[in-house]
């Protein structure tokens, strides 16, 4: 067993990151990159995050920038309300599926 994903998984992760970035395209470049970074920080498992260096040729500019933000600055603050979660003692909101 190794911790490096096989090429299928890597390609899929790159695709996922690009797709997230593409859906934030209504925002300007920096905001879109920060929103993408926030999304990945909140929803991806550590091995998925670790699999991408940010240097992959197939990453879009926004997605590549998002990984740079994660590596250089760590998790950004919530960028959309989708990544604002309830506090420990808070009830009422839901992001039920």
């Amino acid at each position: 067993m190794s911790d490096t994903p096989h090429s299928g998984t890597l390609a899929r992760l790159i695709y996922m990151a690009n797709q997230i970035a593409r859906n934030f395209c209504a925002l300007d470049h920096d905001a879109a990159a920060t929103a993408t970074a926030d999304h990945i920080a909140q929803f991806w498992d550590p091995r998925m995050k670790a699999a991408i260096s940010g240097k992959e040729a197939d990453l879009s500019d926004v997605a590549a920038r998002a990984f740079a933000i994660l590596h250089e600055q760590g998790e950004p603050a919530p960028q959309t309300r989708a990544t604002v979660f309830n506090d420990a003692d808070e009830g009422g909101r839901s992001d039920a599926g």
Partner: peptide, 23 residues
């Protein structure tokens, strides 16, 4: 994970972003 993944997870995401709660 749960099978809501394959049906209504976008409801959660979408309504939470717009209304602040997603039910």
């Amino acid at each position: 994970d749960t099978c809501a993944r394959v049906c209504h997870s976008p409801t959660g995401y979408g309504l939470k972003t717009t209304f602040g709660t997603s039910a």
